[in-house]
C-alpha cells in the first residue's frame, strides 16, 4: 500500500520566547486511511500539521507527502503542493468573511489549477458537495459568510477542503466549536465525503469520544515528544 504521509526522524525547534522542540521518530499514514490523532493542547499538534502541510520545515528528518519529499521542494512548490493535494479544515475562522460561501469554496481552486481541471463545472461541484454536507443551495449562493452559523461555516470549510478531490484532508479540531449533536453529524458527513473522494483523512482532536469511526487512533504523546525550555 502506498503511503500518504511518512515522517522519519523529524525534529523541529521553534525559537520564540521559549524554545519548543517537537520530535517525531516515525509516522506512517496509508493512502485512504482515516487516522485519528488524539492530543491535548500543547502536545505540538498544530506544529505537526504545519510540518505535514509544508508550511514549516523541520531542522532534521524527512517529511514525505503523497510520495513527495517536502524538503526537496522550493517554498513556492511546497505551497503549490499544499494547494493541489491537501484540504485543510480548522477549528474556526475557516472562511474569508468578505467573500460569499461559494467564493470561499472556489478560492481553493484558484490556487490549485490541477484540482480545477479535474472538475467540469466548479460551481456545480461546490453545490454538490455542500448539498451532500447538508447545506441549502440558497445559503451557499446568496448568504453572507458572516450570517452563517459556526456549524454551517464548518461545512463550507469541509466543502472547500474536499473540492477537486485532494489526496489528503487535514482537519485540526474541526468539531470543537460545535455542540455534541452537530459534532457527530458533521464528522459522519466529512468521513463519507472523504471516503467518496478517496482521500486520506487525518484529524487531530483532544476529544477521544470522536475516535470511534476512524480506522486507526494514535495518541500524539506516543508518536511525538515535545520539549520546552526557557531560553
Amino acid at each position: 500500500m502506498k503511503a500518504a504521509i511518512e515522517l522519519k526522524d523529524v525534529a523541529f525547534t521553534w525559537q520564540g520566547r521559549t524554545q519548543f522542540t517537537l520530535s517525531v521518530p516515525n509516522l506512517d499514514v496509508v493512502e485512504g486511511e482515516k487516522l485519528f490523532l488524539l492530543g491535548q493542547s500543547g502536545t505540538g499538534k498544530s506544529t505537526l500539521l504545519s510540518l505535514i502541510c509544508g508550511i514549516t520545515q523541520p531542522q532534521r528528518g524527512t517529511v514525505v507527502v503523497d510520495g513527495v519529499d517536502l524538503a526537496a521542494l522550493r517554498p513556492s512548490a511546497r505551497d503549490r503542493l499544499r494547494a493541489e493535494r491537501i484540504g485543510v479544515i480548522f477549528q474556526m475562522f475557516n472562511l474569508l468573511p468578505y467573500a460569499s460561501p461559494l467564493e470561499n469554496i472556489l478560492l481553493q481552486l484558484s490556487f490549485a489549477p490541477e484540482r480545477r481541471k479535474r472538475l467540469g463545472n466548479a460551481q456545480d461541484e461546490a453545490l454538490r458537495l455542500t448539498a451532500a454536507l447538508g447545506l441549502d443551495d440558497q445559503l451557499v449562493l446568496n448568504a453572507q459568510t458572516t450570517e452563517l452559523s459556526i456549524g454551517q461555516q464548518q461545512r463550507v470549510a469541509a466543502a472547500r477542503a474536499l473540492i477537486g478531490r485532494p489526496q489528503l484532508i487535514i482537519a485540526d479540531e474541526p468539531t470543537s466549536a460545535l455542540d455534541a449533536n452537530s459534532q457527530t453529524a458533521f464528522l459522519d458527513l466529512l468521513m463519507a465525503q472523504a471516503e467518496e473522494a478517496g482521500a486520506t483523512l487525518v484529524m487531530v482532536s483532544h476529544d477521544a469520544r470522536l475516535a470511534n469511526s476512524f480506522d486507526r487512533t494514535l495518541d500524539l504523546a506516543d508518536i511525538a515528544s515535545t520539549k520546552r525550555r526557557a531560553s
Binding site: D79, A83, F90, L96, P97, F111
Partner: peptide, 16 residues
C-alpha cells in the same frame, strides 16, 4: 492575520 493564515493554509504563497 487569521485571514492571511487561512490564505496560506489553502495554498497561497506569502508573496500572494
Amino acid at each position: 492575520r487569521r485571514e492571511m493564515a487561512l490564505l496560506r493554509a489553502i495554498g497561497a504563497r506569502p508573496w500572494t
